[in-house]
Design a protein around this nucleic acid. Structure first.
Length: 666
DNA sequence: GAGACCTTAAACATTC
DNA sequence: CGAATGTTTAAGGTCT
């Protein structure tokens, strides 16, 4: 429910939420916009593409590559531009967010949509295309990052030198501002990642990928750490940061390590000359070493859409001249600018690492799926190493490591859900598309806990999850709130919004039952009701899967592949307490026609589910804490407890059982 | 286009 | 009385 990125929050977020809201909002808006656009471009444009008729594999490959490159370029531009601040969200951001899709869509008239490609090419061909595409894209990104880092490095050096001569007064006063900046950066970072994910550029897995990202920001953002970060004082316990903090100029070093892999082949010619559809000047080129203050005739990396692209600054400048003036006055060499640069560097670094990890994962996945053994990509290995070095602690790799290779490209929920659309869509994907919340959360616990990313689940599913996670399956409203804040960084903000939403959901959905307790009232979940509300639309239909996956850039894969991937993406149900041997059933509502129908048994699944789990436990409302025995009730075989629905037969129970463990599946 | 779902906002009632 | 809880209604979005 809420997970989505904050988009919702942002959109209508009341003033109070701005801090976060703006960011998220931006993310959301942008993401949503991007997603929407992308979706439209990919999914619907096909019609246009169809007219083209069939293309040769070579052509397709070319187009795919071009498309990927364009997208990558767009992304890089955004990065390069200093990560536009969240504040802009609406107009600008949405614009930027949409850039990619648009550019992609416009890039070549002949471009085919993934679906089209899918139809035309055979799985092996598609796979090959995907691999090549990704390789190209990654290389491009890496190249660009490297350049950018160099620029940053130069800039920092310059500033530092100059800075030595400047008095350090007002350091303290600036800390707040820095903190905000860092927070913004963190959020932007995440947003960008999300955008990437949505665009299918990068598949992010919270565990790994996001881990580093978050880690860094987190640490960096921690108020107490900020000063150190800014000052360049390494924090004792945090090696990862140290590398960066310590002379923020380790850039060379870091850049080298991080981008080393990129070096070898420059796959494609510089794309700098491309003009983006959206009108944004392509400034990709490495051309200027000292990008910082110089302005090139006509354009400046930090200037776009008539505004200053310096992180956190959205000052409008009518023309380049004005912008330059602004740049020199507002972003002169000072602590703040330096810190911002460092943050930016970290962002870039994180992205690189992320990229490497994801590509590696992709390889593993493909290998596992028997897609042709991919040749190791040059960059992947090195990156990994660097990543490890850089962020030893940061990542909390969930226990799922074993599954890692095969597991989702990104956090399961995140992936499908967020990719799709920022808003309501997410919920669907996660919720209805059966991604198991519990497992997802279990796997990406750290991710959500630290990343200010809206979880791809609906409020209802989250609330349910919160309740089910407790031994007695009941929580007070306040406990639910606490769970939200504890489990999701995102909900540590915008309290007014989501709390209201939580209350609203509790009251609105029949599946949430309020039980009077001694202490007051607690909320429980009526699984039966919960199940009822989900429409069975998702039956593993190719369409569904396709949709889910398309976001992952697997659009090109054919249905079977998609389905396979989709399944593979389902995290192991490893959450404690929820075992689910028969998890398969949980994966997708494959069988049934309609899960919603209480009476419908799922034969196939049913068999797998352990008999011991009796239906009643889930179906009926949870008992109130007061009752001592309730805890055990789960295991009670007896159906008896008055399930709300007498109609529910054994079959139904089964469903319930399955679901419980996996949670959402349906 | 209709219907189902979601999210957010907000007004209002009730309870603590 | 004010804050926390709950309930409802309304509006706007997305997706099938």
């Amino acid at each position: 429910m809420m997970v989505e990125s904050a988009s919702e929050t942002i959109r209508s977020a009341p003033s109070g939420q701005n801090g976060v809201g703006s960011l998220s909002g931006q993310a959301d808006g942008s993401s949503a916009g991007a997603a929407g656009t992308a979706g439209g471009g990919a999914g619907r444009d096909p019609a246009a593409g169809d007219s083209n008729g069939e293309m040769s594999p070579a052509d397709l490959l070319h187009f795919q590559q071009q498309q990927a490159l364009q997208v990558a370029r767009q992304f890089l531009l955004q990065q390069a531009s200093g990560l536009s601040s969240p504040g802009n969200s609406d107009s600008k951001q949405s614009a930027s967010a949409v850039q990619v899709p648009v550019s992609v869509a416009m890039m070549s008239p002949q471009m085919l949509t993934p679906q089209q490609m899918q139809q035309i090419l055979s799985p092996p061909q598609l796979q090959a295309l995907l691999q090549q595409q990704q390789a190209l894209m990654l290389q491009q990104l890496q190249e660009y990052y490297k350049k950018q880092q160099e620029q940053l490095h130069l800039q920092l050096l310059t500033q530092q030198q100059a800075g030595k001569q400047q008095p350090k007064e007002a350091l303290g006063s600036k800390q707040l501002a820095f903190q905000q900046q860092l927070l913004q950066m963190q959020q932007l970072q995440q947003q960008h990642l999300l955008n990437l994910q949505r665009q299918g550029l990068v598949s992010l897995q919270p565990n790994q990928a996001s881990g580093p990202l978050q880690t860094l920001p987190q640490a960096a953002v921690c108020p107490t750490d900020l000063p150190q970060l800014w000052k360049g004082e390494g924090a004792p316990g945090q090696p990862a940061e140290d590398s960066v903090k310590q002379e923020g100029l380790d850039l060379t070093g870091t850049a080298t390590t991080a981008t080393s892999f990129a070096a070898p082949s420059k796959v494609s010619p510089p794309l700098s000359h491309h003009t983006l559809p959206n009108g944004q000047p392509t400034v990709l080129t490495p051309r200027r070493d000292s990008s910082s203050h110089e302005e090139t005739p006509g354009s400046h990396p930090l200037y776009g859409h008539g505004e200053c692209k310096w992180p956190g600054c959205e000052t409008l400048c009518e023309d380049l001249g004005q912008f330059i003036k602004h740049l020199n006055t507002e972003h002169a060499l000072d602590d703040r600018s330096t810190a911002q640069c460092r943050v930016q560097m970290q962002v870039v670094q994180q992205l690189e690492i992320q990229l490497a990890k994801e590509s590696e994962r992709l390889q593993a996945m493909m290998a596992h799926l028997h897609m042709r053994p991919s040749e190791p990509k040059p960059f992947s290995q090195p990156v990994t190493v660097s990543a490890a070095d850089s962020f030893p602690d940061g990542l909390v790799h969930p226990p799922t490591s074993a599954a890692a290779p095969v597991t989702p490209l990104r956090p399961p929920g995140l992936g499908s859900a967020s990719l799709h659309s920022g808003g309501p869509a997410r919920r669907r994907s996660s919720d209805k598309f059966c991604s198991p919340i519990s497992s997802e959360l279990a796997q990406n616990h750290e991710f959500y806990k630290n990343a200010d990313v809206r979880p791809p689940f609906t409020y209802a599913s989250l609330i349910r999850q919160a309740i089910l996670e407790t031994p007695d399956r009941q929580l007070t409203l306040n406990e639910i709130y606490n769970w939200f804040t504890r489990m999701f960084a995102y909900f540590r903000r915008n309290t007014a919004t989501w709390k209201n939403a939580v209350r609203h959901n509790l009251s609105l959905h029949k599946c949430f039952v309020r039980v009077e307790n001694v202490k007051g009232a607690v909320w429980t979940v009526d699984e039966r009701e919960y199940q009822k509300r989900r429409p069975p639309k998702m039956t593993g239909s190719p369409t569904l899967v396709k949709n889910m996956i398309s976001g992952l850039s697997y659009g090109a894969l054919n249905a079977s592949y998609q389905a396979a991937l989709a399944e593979s993406s389902f995290p192991l149900l490893n959450s404690p307490g929820m075992l689910n041997p028969g998890s398969t059933s949980s994966l997708l509502p494959l069988s049934h026609d309609d899960v919603g129908a209480p009476g419908e048994p799922l034969p196939s699944n049913g068999s797998s589910t352990p008999p011991r789990l009796s239906p009643p436990q889930y179906s009926h409302q949870v008992q109130v804490k007061e009752e001592p025995a309730e805890a055990e009730e789960d295991r009670r075989p007896g159906p008896p407890l008055g399930p709300p629905n007498p109609s529910a037969g054994p079959a139904e129970d089964r469903d319930l059982e399955e679901e419980l463990p996996g949670e959402e599946l349906s």
